[in-house]
Nucleic acid binder design. Structure first.
Lengths: 222, 222
DNA sequence: CTTACTTTGTACCAATCGGTTAATTTGGTC
DNA sequence: GACCAAATTAACCGATTGGTACAAAGTAAG
């Protein structure tokens, strides 16, 4: 008798880490697709294997969730980068490979690019609050510093070559290639996004960056 | 007697064009600052010298307003570009000047950049609907085509130099310089955004793009 | 066994927000 | 100066949406 409130919720395991991870993954896709204000908590909840209540249980509120998504996005991408091993290559080859890798890596992670775009729309306000992200990125430039040092020591690179500036140019060309694809292709067509087009752009990136780093008298051959 | 509903709204002139323009200007700033879903119609209305009802009167709905803002943004920027006169310059100088101009022009129009970022978040769905924008942009590349033709004819530029690719690289470096300023500076500091930093980046842009266009044997001198 | 932590489910709420209704004024026209 | 379409105002509305309340029960660990 005594109508015990529906106990049709039987047999489930606790898995806090899994639930968190699941929510984060869904939320990242949603935020990437619709922006911070465009994403809907109910929609995120629906695509989750858990409920809306759990989102608030683990992340507090929408902004808290977004902040965690932002950190997770940087973490994934930066750790992916660290797999690249360059120390055994001569400086020019290392720089080449780093540029190519960055270009392809960004191309492979469009959701990360979109999250960064969204964060820039918000003036980096949430990124500001994350110590982790600053650390991750500070590490991201060390590879370039090593390459530049070796290149200068070998007399190949210009004395005033600056790792941060090289990073800027590589990032710009690799980032833009993903971030502005929609508007660019709608206006000028898809030619640059075909496999050949992408190969050409990547070659140009390498050519420009290496050309910028090398001393003028070392550039002749190519 | 007869309580005529408050006529405390006396003395106003009709000015359709002015009202439209005023709404567009305010809306552009709001959309640029907050995105399509982030912008609030009430907020836009409040900052206008007219009322919310007028927004719907002239633009139908929020998306209609956004679409018009998008067109207006492109119109302003592209017409600003057309003032640049390059035909009297030798090809290398013309290319240099075009690159520098683009860099500075984008830097001067951050709201345009932000609108384009937002449009890319929406996969260019609204841009797709605007014939005007496609026309405006098609024209934007003609300058580069002329430069490339002259450069090739003079035997200075590589035979396979492609105007669209040059435009891509110039756009990428100029666009990224504005679009990703927030996240980049929060992570790596402000050095690149000081006057000297910006001058350096601009010089690099010119150097890289000109270097890419020139035949290898014409590059030596710099 | 006890106790704190997780998970589920449902119903609900207050505020926000895009959009509308309806009345009123302006300004040109016949 | 009567008339009418275009322009403008203020009040209003219904749905969406971020976030909660409440109640209960399963899990894991000491």
């Amino acid at each position: 008798m005594n109508d015990k409130p529906a106990n049709n919720r039987a047999g489930w395991k606790q898995d806090p880490a899994g639930v968190r991870k699941n929510i984060l993954a869904v939320a990242m896709a949603e935020f990437a697709a619709n922006g911070l204000s465009g994403a809907r908590i109910d929609e995120i909840a629906a695509k989750t294997s858990t409920s809306k209540r759990m989102i608030y249980y683990y992340f507090g509120d929408k902004e808290g969730l977004y902040g965690q998504v932002l950190e997770e996005a940087y973490r994934q991408v930066r750790t992916g980068e660290q797999e690249l091993e360059l120390d055994h290559l001569p400086p020019v080859e290392a720089l080449k490979l780093l540029a190519e890798f960055t270009f392809e890596h960004h191309s492979r992670n469009p959701d990360f690019i979109r999250i960064v775009m969204i964060e820039n729309i918000h003036d980096g306000a949430y990124l500001e609050q994350s110590e982790l992200i600053r650390l991750l990125n500070a590490g991201a430039i060390q590879k370039l510093e090593a390459i530049c040092r070796r290149g200068r020591d070998a007399g190949l690179f210009r004395d005033d070559v600056a790792p941060l500036e090289l990073h800027w140019h590589i990032s710009a060309l690799s980032f833009f290639n993903v971030s502005n694809r929609a508007t660019f292709s709608r206006i000028f067509g898809n030619a640059l996004f075909s496999p050949e087009g992408q190969r050409t752009l990547k070659e140009h990136l390498v050519e420009m960056v290496v050309g910028l780093a090398l001393k003028p008298d070392r550039r002749s051959r190519r």
